[in-house]
Simulated scan of single mutants.
Amino acid sequence: MTQARLMDGTAVARRIVEEAAQRAADLTARTGVTPCLATVLVGEDPASVTYVRMKQNRSRKAGIASRHVALPAATTTAELVGRLRELSADPAVHGILLQHPVGEHIDERAAFEAIAPEKDVDGVTFASFATMSFGLPGFVSCTPGGMLRLLDAYDVDPAGKRAVVVGRSAILGKPAGMLLLARDATVTYCHSRTRDLSAVVREADIVVAAVGRPRLIGGRDLKPGAVVLDAGYNEGNVGDVDFDTAVEQASLITPVPGGVGPMTIAVLLEQTVTAATRQLGA
């Protein structure tokens, strides 16, 4: 069998960011206001610090102002909620990103819900999930949104196809399935209680791996010609899919890194510019 084509998230993301940068520049020229993304980080987890710094750098390159709020690891839920509400009420801030996870002592859902829906450019609130599910104007969860944009870029139409989502987190697995359902795919969710996972995955035309377990899905688990979107990122730069065996079965597959990751940031920046445009009535 011919090896799968790689879905180049870096290249597709670059085009999205270039378009977002042009929109940001046009908005600034028309209104005198630069779109602003506020990032909030609790603690000093090395991976989270790196992710936030990357997002700040990409924001600046796209003509988006960046405001960073660094909070100590001992920050309480009430303190975090208070800071997020302050940012939500600040007219100079157009988008808010709370870097997660935030620590086990914090009620992460309460923190997310302190973000005003019109500034939820990461798509993590109840309101964002609802608007996404009902196909109404709002903001999608960035990683699932990025995966759908990859499918579009490679001319993969989910309509009528069987999609299997492995993982059911509130900001990745669940929204990924809802977005595929909105595109008329037939969606099955799999998780830690799924019996005979391999048999279910083997029926899929589109596989979304979003469970956080390295190399959980291998080539033996895939239907020949399946499209594979690997949202996993584990220690050692490996995804949730065993790339070396999966590439022999799939028709299209995302590499790790360089697949889904760049798309996540691209959608975040695009949605920040959209949020600023809406808030400025422009």
Rank of each mutant, 00 (worst) to 15 (best):
L197R: 14
I171P: 02
E104A: 15
R168C: 15
E108N: 03
L98M: 09
T125W: 14
R193G: 00
G177H: 02
A127P: 00
V207N: 08
M132L: 15
L181H: 03
L179A: 03
E108G: 06
A176I: 02
S192G: 05
K119M: 10
S133P: 01
C142L: 10
D205G: 06
A199F: 09
R149L: 13
A127N: 09
V164T: 06
L180R: 01
L197M: 12
P117I: 12
G145P: 03
A209N: 05
V121T: 15
A209Q: 04
V121C: 14
D120F: 09
M178F: 10
M178W: 01
L148M: 15
E113F: 14
K174I: 13
A209K: 01
C190S: 05
G177R: 00
S192T: 12
G173A: 11
T125H: 13
R162N: 13
V102D: 05
M147N: 02
K174T: 10
R183K: 10
S133Y: 09
E113W: 13
A182W: 00
G95Y: 10
V207Y: 07
G95A: 13
M147R: 01
C190K: 08
R183G: 04
V200N: 06
L179G: 02
Y154T: 02
I106H: 04
E113K: 03
T194M: 10
H105T: 04
A116I: 09
M132W: 07
C190I: 04
G135T: 03
T188K: 05
R202C: 08
A170E: 06
V124W: 11
L179P: 02
V187Y: 06
A153V: 09
V200K: 12
D152M: 02
E113V: 03
A199G: 10
D157C: 02
M132I: 04
S169A: 07
R202P: 00
G173F: 08
G160P: 09
V166W: 09
G145K: 00
T143Y: 11
H105L: 12
A199K: 15
P158I: 03
H94I: 06
L179S: 01
S133M: 14
T143R: 01
L97I: 10
I206Y: 07
V121G: 13
